[in-house]
Design a protein around this nucleic acid. Structure first.
Lengths: 133, 133
DNA sequence: CAAACATATGAACATTTATTCATATGTTTG
DNA sequence: CAAACATATGAATAAATGTTCATATGTTTG
């Protein structure tokens, strides 16, 4: 239960004064601030996480993902389904691929896209649950 | 098992020719295209979903959410924790509040923010799982 | 191998977005 | 109630993003 890591002295010296004032001083609710930075994941993980959610954060890409819930589909069918340019779809597929949400396999002239793994479904399902609550 | 909704005639008339060509014609892999549009959620739901994920799609907001995993925190403590301007944090909190990911309650002079519900944790956890796979 | 086809990609443009600065709103305290 | 404080917000700016157009890459077919 006891994790003392050489911080007792500072803690001692500011005790009882840490939640009296706020934004005007450097040290605030020091305990919380410290706990937060201790638990915060490393920068690059936060970046990757934000990038991942960015991939879900666009109507066109969401629609592509919903389309791929139904079947593996080639680019031009996606374009036809969503009523959009082949180029637009292709650009968005590149982003989805980068986020490893979809992959493509070649079948003859065409490249057929499919969901890369099951997290896609889970995450979108959770999102649905949230907006429906 | 039989769901015939008055579409048998068209289906008959184009049978066997629907996966011969692709992008140059209007009708493509018509069966897939049709299934996709049947299963596609309504426009406003897709929009809401994309907006929700946009809220997760920024490092600053992700960091705010991680901070709030640890404790309910006021704006200035968040600013101190993340080493950012009070104004920047406040603007981002507004977006998180709009997406109903966080709420705030007033406590004296301060406004203490907290996670609005448990989907936040679940969604971020799934995101973590994905980027770690 | 040449022509047709399916997809990918670079550049340009319009839109959206995140942060900063200045200031407004609303609360507490002497 | 006036001064101090905590938060919110509008305007401005720089950066990121989505779509289009033109074209490149790579595959198939006659």
């Amino acid at each position: 239960m006891e994790l003392k890591s050489g911080k007792e002295m500072e803690k001692e010296s500011r005790k009882m004064m840490h939640d009296i004032e706020c934004c005007e001083v450097e040290e605030v609710h020091a305990d919380k601030v410290q706990m937060v930075s201790e638990q915060m994941p490393p920068e690059d993980r936060l970046y990757d996480l934000a990038e991942l959610f960015k991939a879900f954060g666009d109507t066109t890409r969401i629609r592509i993902l919903f389309a791929l819930f139904e079947a593996d589909i080639c680019v031009c069918d996606l374009a036809a389904s969503l009523g959009m340019t082949q180029s637009a779809i292709s650009h968005q597929l590149r982003l989805l691929k980068q986020a490893r949400l979809v992959s493509g396999r070649r079948e003859g002239k065409q490249i057929v896209y499919f969901l890369a793994d099951d997290h896609v479904r889970t995450i979108i399902q959770q999102g649905m649950d949230h907006i429906m609550e």
